[in-house]
Structures are given as C-alpha cells and as structure tokens.
Design a protein around this nucleic acid. Structure first.
Length: 927
RNA sequence: GGGAGCAUAGCUCAGUUGGUUUAGAGCAUCUGCCUUACAAGCAGAGGGUCCGCGGUUCGAACCCGUGUGCUCCCA
C-alpha cells in the first residue's frame, strides 16, 4: 500500500470517530468492572468551545481513555447547561432582530422561541466535542432543563424549603440593570478603577425652626457639613449623615439635622463607629437603598429607605429630579446643578473598585429586593469537612485548598432567584393575600393552601372550594442556573429524581472532576454541598483544576480582545491530535498556559514523525527473511541461546552481526519501554499529564525513532530478520497504545496499518508492566553517550557525514564494545573498529569514562582543537574533583553524613580521578 | 486592606524526604548535512549569579527570615 508523504488527519479522524461510536465503545452500562466516571462540566448551551474548554475536554478524554484501556468501565457523561442569563439575552437579541419585543410575549411564547433557539444552536458544542475526539457516552447526553432534571430541581427546592434552608426575603442584592435580574455574589466581578471623590456641602438645618424656610436655599453657607461621595447621583436617596462619635470635629452636631442639596430633604446626623474619621471628610452620607453598608447602618438606626433607581438603572420617581435619566447621565447632570448652586466644593481622583455583572458587563447596582435565598452555613460544614479530611483531593492542592476553606468558612446566603423566564420556574405559589405555598406542582400547592385554611377556620362548610378553583399565582422568577448544575453528578444518573436507582448506585461517586479554577465556588463547592447533603457521599474523589488559557503575551483569551482562536479552524489546519498535543504539552498541571500555535505545529510535526516511522517499517514488510519462526528473545527479552545457535548455523544469514546487534537493540528498547511505562503510570496518578506526554514523546521520537530504528535498520535494500521485524511492529503497537489517550486518531490509524487487526486500540487493554533491567538500560545509555561523543568529535574535525573513519578503542573491557560493535560502526560511519592496548598517534582522541577512542581519518586531525577540547574537559573534571575532595576532607561531613552519601562521594572521587588520568594520558599522547 | 501562589537557560517549565558526577527538558538560537522514513527532517553545539540579602546545616535551587517583582482570590 502506498502511504502519503505526510500524515493527513482529516482523512482518518472522521472515519475512526464513526467507527468507535458505531462499535459503541464509549457507551457504558453497569457491570462487574470497577467504574471510572467523569461528568463533563456542562458548557453553556449558547456557546462554542473556546480554548479553555479544549484543554478541559482533552484532559478528561485522556483520563477516561486511559481508564478504559486499564480495566475500568469508563463512563463520561456529556451535556450542557441552560445558562439562564446568557441564553435569555441571546434569545431576546434574536427576537429584537426579528422586530419582536420580549415584553409583548407571554412566558409560554417566549419559552417556545427559546427552545427553538436551543435546538438550533445547542448542538454546535456537541459537534465540537466530537471533532476533538472526546470519548463521551452520547446516549447519556444531559441538559439541565430535561424533564427529569427540571423535576429534580423542583424537588430539591421544595425539600430545602421544607427544611428551612430556602427562604424568601427582602435583602440588599446585586442587581444587573441590563439583564434586569438579581445576581449572586459570585456573579459580580470587581475591577479596579480610578474613580472620583466629590466633596459636597450639606447645609445644617436650623434647629430652632421645625420646618425649613423656603428661603433657606438662598442663604449663604455659613453652617454646613462637607461629605465626600463617589456617587453624587444618589444624594436624593440620602436619609442620614453619619459621623464617628469619637470624632471631636462633629461633636457639636449631636441631634442636629442637615439638608440634602437639590431636593431639600431634612435628614438627621447620626453617630456610629462604623465611620472612618480619616476617610474623606469623616462625614458619610447614608443612602440605605443603594449601598450595602449604608443599608446595614439604616437597619441599625431605623432610617428611611428611599430607592431612587428603577430596575433598568434610570432614576425613579422617588428621586424627585431627573426621573427617567440613566444613572451615569444623571450623575453628570446632578454635578452640574450642584456646581451651579454652590454645593460643590472639589473633586479628587480616588482609586476604587467597581462590581460588574459577569454576564452583561454593566456596573452592578446594590439594590434592595425580595428574593429567594439558600442558607449556606448549614450546607458548608460537610462540604468543608469532605475536603479537609482528604476524602476529596484537590489538584494542585497547595494552591486551592486555602481558597476553598476561606470561602466556605465565610460564605453568605446564596441568592437563587433570577428575574428571567429561561430556567426552572420557582415552585412557589401565592394566593391573593400574599401567602406563599411551596410545592412541586400547582395541585400540591393548592392542597397546601387548603390544609392551611382548614387549620385556620375549623368550619368545614366554607371549604367546599375545590383545590383547582383557588386562585394561585406561581412565582414568576426562575432559579439560578447553578442551582441546577450543582446537582449534576447525581442527576445525570437520575440520582435525585429516582434515588437509589441502579445507575446512580454504580456510577456515583464519580472519579474525577476536571474544571477551571474560576468556578471553584460557583460550581465545585456547591456540588460538594449538594452531594454531601443528598447522598452523604462526596460527588467525586479528585478535583483537577486546569489553569487559564492565555495568549502568547499572557493576556486572558476573550472575545473582545479577539485573541481566542476558533477551535474548528485549528483542527482543520493541524488536525485534532495535534491540537490535543499542543494544548497538553504546554499545560503544566494547574498553571496557566500560554497558548501558542507553535505548540500545535510541534504536534503536527510529531504526527508526521510517527507517520514516517510507519513508512520505514512498511518498507521492511515483505522484505523479511523467510525464516524459522522460533522466538529469538524470550519473555524477559533475553536472547534464547538455542536461537542464537540456530541463527549461527544458518548460512544464508547475510550478516550475523546484524542479528546480534538487533537483538541488543531489541533487548534495550523492550526494557526502556517498560521503564517509561512505569514512569507514565506514576505521572497519571499524580495528574501530571503534560509531563506524561513529554516522556512518551521523547520515548517515541528519541529512543524509538532516533536510536532503536537506526540500530536495527538493515542496509539499503537489505532484508530484515522476521523476528526483528515482528518485534519492531510489536514495539510500535505498544507505543501507539501508550500514546493513544493523548492522540487517539493517528494512533488508531497506525495501529491498523502496522498489521491486519481484528481489535481496536481504543479498547485494547494494557498489559502488565514488567520490571525493567537496569543493567541493559545503563549499557544502552553508555552506547548512546559514546556515539554522540564520537559524532561530536567528527563534527569538530569537520568531517563530512559521508567520510568514513577508522575507530580504535582502548578499553579494559573491550567485550562491552564488541557486543555493540556493528551498531557503533554504522552510527559513527566507521569502516573499521579495532581494539588497542596502546595509544594511537596523530589521531583525534575522545575520552569517555576510563576508555579512549581514537579517530583516524583522511583528514588530518586538528591537534590544537582536540587539545583545547581536552583541556576544557580536564578543567571541568578537576573542578569537580575539588568539590568532592572538599567535602571528604571536612571531618564533620564524614562524621555526620549518612554512610551511603560518603561512599558515593568516594566513588565520585575515584571516577573523577580516573577520568582525569584518561584525559591527561590523551593529552600527553598529542604532544 | 486580608489571604494564597510564583520567581531556575532567550521563552515555557521539571527538579520527589536537603547529598544522585560542580543544575535538566521542550521550544527557540547557532554549526554542519537534500545520509537509501522523515528539511514539518538528521547530526551536533552553545546557553544559567537557580530574583537580592541574611540565617539554619558538615552540606541549600530545595528549609527559615527579610526585601523586591509578578499573578490570582477575597473585602
């Protein structure tokens, strides 16, 4: 079969993904095997996968595929969440473009449009997940608004309400004036800004007169108090001025009143230690409706609450002036008027922080509003314990444990209601008197009301009203999306809607949760809360936090910066395997990763390397020697003596040495493979996937391609021994298996091209790892070292690759080199190798350990260059010896250090001395 | 303001309980090669005050203190 020059990903990716899904390899059903369960962090239904998702999904796929190939019943559940605010905003926008105003629609009509929109665009994200090669069980795809999921959310809400954990009340909440909904504390992002502090004069009211004189505003400001504020547009909501009781400057104002500028409201001057006398002027204007701290002051001092803002952020009737003007425009107008009327003193720059809505991006308005809340203190305890006790392990732990702990210990109640339509409508019903009945259905709510009225009036006669005739109105708000996604690890297996079912018993708790560190509170902590509350069992054993994906310059990827590449474009350009490789190789666990397309190029090059190695091996196919099929190496990779003899007796073997050195190479690589497999296993267990990939990459590129294949490569047009060929195919297959979780497509493709297969790599189980033989590994390292040093010497002597050399080896253990002679011969392009006892004159000399290698060639050796090289090495060795001697001559070192350490230093000394002798002898020879 | 993390080659990072041949890798750079799988490649090389200062120790990239710089979280 003719193989293309380069690997073409597009040709194979679709084919294999279809094959895997047709074979139902990704579908999981409970069985006797241990489960390995992962639930996808549901991307929101409106979106497309960005680079952060790509990293995330790749990590999960690696873990899941590895588990699937290691005896586990791997189950990866895909899905998406309904993203209340984001989706509603998009649907509203779409309707607007069609000339439809949301306010003209009924709830039902709007939801019909929203579901249509979801059907149309919700699938994009799934096709991207598939493109990336993710081995999810598509039959389990879950959406947070699915019927069973909806019911589960209702059930949980009602249950928590009945337990007294969910309550309704008027509180200061974060209000998004663009989305016109409440937000939770976590949905507010604070940004540093340079704000302005405006100093304003408030006249003091004349205490002698009960009512203020209309003419007062014309009077000069003889008696006034100066306040500093960042929000002059809120002065119309002022209901007090507060000063510190210990501040002597204001002591005389006790019991006095001040007049709010522009609207002439008379407000008391109150005293509270909350006020910092050193900030601003030491006098604080108190606006209980528009600041959380002022709100608390208001509660304490029984102040009036004047809400001067509408839900869309414009000034309300209560403001009296500039009604209907947007808040920031109003600020400008108010300032102008304050200046005109002489209330304005000065302004200064002031570094501050402002809260922005995570969803709409507008400045969040603190607002008093009646909302539904979940008590968090009660939920936090078990969630904290599960992590602190180590039941759930966080990776990387040192970074996030403290954050997690702090949040849970200081958590405030969670505002769970949203003034939106897209989402689970709150299952609370009100009667005309404002009584609330919380139940999963209207009927149950009605019967609750019936019961309540029965309890109230014993008279049964008036209660003939049927439940359905009761005029109940359902709460028009929906629940925060996170109030549904916190049930995710349970409800994807219907653990809430159908508790105790077979599936949830088998798959829960899940194995690992892979997600971004930015949703540690939004989602991770709350999932742990829900899991502990409803199952009293952790939702997952490990949490793996990936870092943020940034661009090359370290900036966060964002739509506004336009620095986030399109995933499908990248896959088109480099192939899915290369994208996976690129993002993983540059992604140290838990650290942010600087995304650079160069790493994808590296991935594509790696694909190509694999492809070319395949081509080389395929050239040998059919060129194998018809041969006795006897094994040449046994299970321990040792050469079987019998086989050795057998080959020795076969006269048509063209190059006995070739088999000999091929056997050496096979033995070495077999052990090297086992060694790396063991290393990779440890790295997996520590979630150090980036390093695992690096190790595998190097094993394939360096050890397999650059060394092993070169060592066993037969001469041009020469045949290859059947056994060497098959052993090589086997190695190649094992390497593909090892790499498969990281780069599933090309590995499956090559696996099948190497030889005819009935099975698929995707589900091929890993064999047990064998203990590697360190002797052969060390020997291989020495061989590599010798080859590299001799090649370096050739380079430095400016020998062309084609020019041959005569190599003389002076060693006390020449048998070591005789065993690998033919490899050495080929690798350094020597025409002969001889063993000598004496130095060889006028040759380039290379000293390695205690052995000396002389290179003789047509080209005269550059004695000066060789000498300089040796002197440099000598200096280094002497310096090293010095440091060792310094330690050994230190009595306290010898007395205190462990015996092994001292012995090691002694060995270092002996080795260094031997090397120095070798170098000095070589130098002497040069003169 | 409170807390956490980080600082090692030009860049991105490893470096396990302090001792493992006077610090390792990948990428980038430089030199030489179109060598019969691969120039998206091969062979080789150079490159470090382990952020500064102080301490503990026989011995510190590693432990402690301190300063500086960066990042993140929280208020």
């Amino acid at each position: 079969m003719e193989l293309s020059k380069n690997y073409i990903p597009s040709a194979t990716e679709e084919k294999w993904y279809k094959h895997w899904t047709d074979k139902k390899y990704f579908n999981s059903h409970p069985d006797g095997r241990p489960s390995y369960t992962v639930v996808i962090p549901p991307p929101n239904v409106t979106g497309v996968l960005h680079m952060g998702h790509t990293l995330n999904e790749t990590v999960q796929d690696i873990l899941v595929r590895k588990a699937r190939m290691s005896g586990f019943n791997a189950c990866w559940v895909p899905g998406s969440d309904h993203a209340s605010i984001a989706t509603e905003a998009k649907v509203v926008q779409m309707l607007k473009e069609q000339g439809i105003d949301k306010s003209t629609l009924s709830r039902e009509e709007f939801l019909k449009y929203a579901f249509e929109w979801k059907e149309k665009y919700g699938g994009i994200i799934y096709s991207q997940i598939a493109k990336l090669g993710c081995s999810v069980d598509w039959d389990r795809t879950t959406f947070t608004m699915d019927d069973h999921y909806y019911k589960a959310v209702m059930k949980v809400f009602v249950d928590l309400y009945n337990k007294g954990l969910v309550y309704r009340g008027a509180r200061m909440i974060n209000w998004d004036p663009a989305a016109k909904t409440a937000l939770s504390d976590e949905e507010v992002e604070f940004k540093d800004i340079v704000g302005k502090l405006y100093y304003l004069k408030y006249r003091l009211a004349d205490t002698s007169a009960e009512t203020t004189d209309k003419n007062e505003s014309d009077q000069s400001f003889e008696n006034y108090i100066t306040i500093a504020t960042q929000r002059p547009e809120t002065i119309m909501g002022d209901t007090a001025i507060c000063v510190n009781p210990n501040d002597e400057r204001f002591a005389h104002l006790k019991g006095k009143y001040a007049i709010v500028p522009l609207i002439d409201r008379r407000i008391p001057i109150i005293f509270d230690e909350y006020v910092d006398p050193t900030f601003g002027t030491g006098a604080l204007k108190v606006t209980p409706a528009h600041d959380i701290n002022d709100y608390n002051l208001g509660l304490k001092h029984n102040l009036e609450v004047v809400d001067t803002l509408n839900e869309d952020g414009t000034l309300s009737e209560a403001a009296q002036i500039y009604v209907g003007v947007e808040r920031f425009a109003a600020r400008k107008k108010v300032l102008v008027e304050l200046k005109e009327k002489g209330y304005f003193l000065k302004e200064e720059e002031y570094p501050s922080r402002l809260g922005y809505s995570q969803r709409s991006g507008v400045v969040v308005e603190p607002r008093i509003s009646t909302q539904w809340f979940l008590k968090m203190k009660e939920m936090a305890g078990p969630a904290l314990r599960a992590v602190l006790d180590g039941e759930i392990k966080i990776h990387p732990g040192e970074k996030f444990l403290a954050t997690y702990k702090y949040w849970l210990e200081n958590v405030k109640d969670w505002c769970i209601s949203r003034q939106l339509w897209w989402g689970q409508q709150i299952p609370a019903w009100y009667d005309d008197k404002g009584n609330v009945f919380v139940a999963e259905t209207r009927e149950q709510a009605a019967s609750l009301k019936l019961q309540a009225s029965r309890a109230e009036q014993q008279d049964g006669e008036s209660l003939q009203l049927a439940a359905d005739s009761l005029q109940l109105t359902q709460d028009s708000d929906v629940l925060d999306t996170w109030f549904s996604s916190w049930l995710w690890p349970m409800e994807v297996f219907k653990g809430i809607s159908d508790p105790g079912n077979k599936e949830v018993d088998y798959y829960y708790p899940t194995s690992v949760l892979v997600t971004g560190q930015d949703i540690i509170f939004f989602w991770v902590a709350r999932m742990i809360m829900a899991g502990m509350h409803y199952k009293n069992v952790k939702p997952f054993s490990d949490v793996y936090f990936t870092g943020m994906v940034r661009d090359k310059q370290g900036r966060k990827m964002s739509k506004s910066l336009g620095n986030s590449p399109d995933l499908l474009d990248l896959i088109d350009k480099y192939g899915a395997d290369a994208v996976r490789f690129g993002i993983m190789i540059s992604s140290p666990a838990g650290n942010d990763l600087l995304f650079d397309e160069a790493s994808l190029e590296q991935g594509r090059n790696f694909n190509n390397k694999l492809w070319n190695a395949l081509k080389l091996v395929k050239i040998w196919e059919g060129r194998q020697m018809a041969e006795d099929t006897k094994e040449i190496v046994d299970d321990n990779f040792e050469l079987v003596d019998e086989t050795k003899q057998l080959f020795g007796e076969i006269d048509h073997l063209p190059n006995e040495a070739h088999l000999d050195h091929a056997n050496y190479a096979i033995n070495w690589f077999a052990n090297r493979l086992q060694q790396v497999r063991a290393d990779v296993e440890i790295l997996y267990s520590q979630f150090r996937l980036s390093e695992a990939l690096k190790v595998i990459y190097s094993l394939i590129w360096d050890d397999f391609c650059s060394w092993y294949l070169e060592w066993i490569k037969p001469g041009f047009d020469q045949p290859i021994e059947d056994e060497v060929y098959h052993k090589t195919i086997q190695f190649f297959e094992e390497l593909m298996q090892l790499l498969h979780p990281f780069m599933p497509f090309i590995t499956e493709e090559i696996y099948h091209l190497l030889s005819d297969k009935q099975d698929d790599l995707c589900v091929k189980q890993f064999s047990a790892i064998k203990e590697a033989n360190h002797e052969i590994l060390t020997s291989g390292e020495l061989l590599k070292q010798v080859i590299s040093a001799l090649r370096d010497a050739r380079n430095k002597s400016q020998l062309k690759p084609k020019e041959t050399i005569k190599l003389f080896i002076q060693s006390e253990h020449s048998e070591v080199y005789r065993k690998i002679e033919s490899i050495l011969l080929k690798q350094v392009n020597a025409e002969t190798i001889s063993y000598v006892q004496e130095t060889v004159a006028n040759a380039t000399v290379v000293a390695i350990e205690k052995d000396k290698f002389y290179i003789e060639s047509e080209r005269k050796a550059d004695i000066q260059a060789v000498k300089a090289e040796l002197l440099k090495d000598l200096e280094h060795q002497k310096g090293f010896l010095q440091s060792v001697l310094k330690k050994l001559s230190n009595e306290r070192f010898v007395a205190n250090a462990k015996a092994e350490v001292v012995d090691l230093e002694k060995k270092k000394q002996a080795d260094a001395e031997a090397r120095i002798r070798t170098i000095e002898e070589s130098l002497a020879n040069l003169v």
